[in-house]
Amino acid sequence: MACFVVPAAEAVVVAIVKKRADKAAKLQAEALACGGANAQTNTEQKARTKTHSGEKISISKKLGWLNAMLWGGTALLFLEHVWHGEVVFWPPFLTAAANPADTAAMLYEIATSGVAMAVLVTLVWAGMAIAADNISWVKAALCKQKEGANQ
């Protein structure tokens, strides 16, 4: 009925957290750059070594994956809800919100299916993030991509 609302809300939160992580990383890079030529060279060298060995992928990039999964899933589920007439483009937008009995069922679905969707996507993302750092061929593939993007 409106289960995609929960993943959408999580996507908004993740987008904000990602923005903050991006900003923090940028500030850190700037601070390191201001620390002198030697410090910069060391940082560059460290970053290059990290990329080659594929030690870790930044949290910002990982949050980007979660964001894509949540926004993508929400957009596609939104289409499904429009298709089935559960979402309309005029108030109250959710057809179930028109009468109290349907509203109760909708809220129950949001609380059960919606939350389960958000939890499942987050768990799979956590698994992906762990795999990206620990499974060699995944690490290698993602680092290759990273190096390509840096060039």
Binding site: C3, P7, L70, G72, M117, Q145
Partner: peptide
């Protein structure tokens, strides 16, 4: 096909479809 996938940003498409598939699994 990593080079092509990187150029075409196929990771984004894969993540979008995966997210939706997971949500429909719950459904």
């Amino acid at each position: 096909k990593q080079k092509t996938a990187e150029k075409l940003r196929l990771g984004l498409l894969a993540l979008m479809y995966s997210g939706a598939a997971l949500m429909w699994t719950v459904d």
